[in-house]
Simulated assay, not measured.
Amino acid sequence: MNPPLRIVFMGTPLFALPSLQVLLDSPDSVVSVVCRTDSVQGRGRKCCPPPVKTLAEQAGIPVLQPESIRNDEFLASIQALQPDLMVVIAYGKILPGRLLRLPRFGTINVHGSLLPKYRGAAPIQRALINGESETGVTIMQMDEGIDTGDILLPARLPISEDDTGATLSSKLAQLGSEALREAIVRLKEGRLPASKQDDTQASYAPMLDKELGHLNWNRPARELHCLIRGLDPWPSAYGFIDGRRFRFFQPQVVPGEVQELPGTLCRADRNGVVVATAQDYLLIREIQPEGKKRMCVQACICGMQLPIGQQFS
């Protein structure tokens, strides 16, 4: 029987939690968790710990939250733990090579795409925005590049018509944890071969920004449908009528020959709002008026009158 591994886990957000839980439940030993520093959140400006920190402390695992991971002091603290393996999931910073190479088995990563497609910071959202029908996770041997390391174990997942950034992230987090469990079993048994990525097939998934969500209604409904879902919950898609911003969620393409100018608000009822686009119509079932909470359209029209016939900018 293979002896348990000493593992250092590096991760920060909710996406990393299922994988950390898998390691905590395994016969291996998580000797430390490294995550980003606590952040100030919400209107109350409360200082909140990262989700990974909360789970680690509940399990009694020592937590490190260094301001920098590139100094000798941090490297020495990891070296003193004598890790066999380091597991990194959405840590949020690029790791230096001397840290990656420190453990006996190096450092592996759970990435939210089928590499070499969608290297970078927002692979899950970009897959949705680009209208992909399939995505997945890749267990990768990390190197100093941005998601360029050797592929160890891929796992595929179909994308549904109703998936959003939030739902797909949750599915891939769970899939990633299962793939990580399998990868570590294979690693200890010496049957986890690495394969080079084909750089000619690589694509990139840059970070999202708020301007990406300002909808251009001169695009087909299908493209807007993918964009709205990919930006849900953050930064979200939006448009303006009479200077007031409305955020859009839960879209559905409604086929039909468009008679109105793109962006025209054609109908608003309990089923949603219907907006004209360059090709087909877009039914939006949830909306968030500026200064209000996200709500179904039926609740929105009970409290305010939407200007039918006007155009979203």
Rank of each mutant, 00 (worst) to 15 (best):
I284C: 04
I159Y: 07
D242N: 14
S160D: 13
V185D: 13
R219D: 05
L282R: 04
E211L: 07
A221G: 06
D72Q: 14
L55A: 15
A16D: 03
D143Q: 12
I108R: 05
R186G: 06
R45E: 07
L180A: 06
G213H: 07
Q65W: 10
S236L: 06
L282W: 03
N216H: 11
F249Y: 14
A155H: 02
R126A: 10
A166F: 13
H214F: 13
S19A: 15
I7W: 05
L153A: 00
I308M: 01
G145A: 03
V40Y: 03
K196P: 01
A59P: 01
S133P: 01
E211F: 10
G213K: 03
S19C: 06
I287V: 12
C266A: 06
I78K: 10
G256S: 11
E290I: 09
L23S: 02
S177G: 15
C296E: 08
G97N: 13
T167F: 05
P66T: 14
A127Q: 02
L102V: 09
S133N: 11
R70C: 06
S177Y: 00
L95N: 10
A278D: 11
I69Q: 08
A276Y: 02
L102E: 07
W217P: 11
P251I: 04
S29Q: 13
I78Y: 00
P103S: 03
W217S: 07
Q141D: 02
P206H: 04
V274N: 00
I228R: 09
F249Q: 03
G272P: 09
G256D: 08
G44H: 10
C302T: 11
S195I: 11
G60V: 14
N218L: 01
I159G: 01
T107S: 14
Q305T: 15
K93Y: 10
A76C: 06
G106Q: 13
G272W: 04
A90C: 13
K292T: 08
W217R: 00
Y204Q: 09
D163V: 09
G190I: 02
Q21K: 15
P251T: 08
T107Q: 03
L187D: 06
L95C: 05
P289M: 10
T264C: 11
T164Y: 09
Q279A: 15
L180S: 04
E132H: 10
N130A: 13
Q125K: 07
S39K: 15
S113I: 12
P154M: 13
D143G: 08
Q311E: 12
P289L: 10
D147P: 06
V30M: 01
P123A: 14
N130C: 07
F9L: 11
Y281T: 04
H225I: 00
N216S: 12
S177F: 04
K46V: 09
L115P: 02
G131T: 13
A80Q: 13
L224Q: 08
D209F: 01
